[in-house]
Amino acid sequence: MLKERVINETVPIQKIYDEEIMKAHFSSETLPSVPLVYKIQPGSNQARKNLTPTLPSSSSFDIPDAYQSTNSDETFLIYDKLVSCKKRVLIFASPK
Rank of each mutant, 00 (worst) to 15 (best):
2 L>W: 02
3 K>C: 09
3 K>M: 09
4 E>C: 00
4 E>I: 04
9 E>M: 02
9 E>I: 02
10 T>S: 12
11 V>Y: 11
13 I>Y: 07
14 Q>F: 12
14 Q>K: 14
17 Y>D: 03
18 D>A: 04
19 E>N: 10
20 E>A: 06
20 E>F: 00
21 I>C: 15
21 I>Q: 13
22 M>C: 02
23 K>Y: 15
24 A>K: 09
24 A>F: 10
26 F>R: 03
26 F>S: 08
27 S>H: 08
28 S>K: 14
29 E>S: 09
29 E>A: 14
30 T>K: 07
31 L>Y: 03
32 P>D: 01
34 V>Q: 02
35 P>S: 06
35 P>K: 01
36 L>D: 12
36 L>E: 15
39 K>Q: 14
39 K>F: 13
39 K>G: 02
45 N>M: 11
47 A>D: 04
47 A>G: 06
48 R>E: 07
48 R>D: 04
49 K>P: 00
53 P>F: 06
54 T>K: 10
56 P>R: 08
57 S>T: 10
57 S>D: 12
58 S>D: 11
59 S>H: 06
59 S>P: 14
60 S>D: 14
60 S>R: 11
70 T>W: 04
71 N>G: 11
72 S>I: 13
73 D>T: 06
74 E>F: 06
75 T>L: 11
76 F>T: 01
76 F>E: 04
78 I>L: 14
79 Y>F: 14
80 D>P: 05
80 D>M: 02
83 V>K: 12
84 S>L: 11
84 S>Y: 00
87 K>A: 11
87 K>C: 15
87 K>T: 14
87 K>S: 10
90 L>S: 08
91 I>L: 14
92 F>V: 02
92 F>C: 05
94 S>P: 06
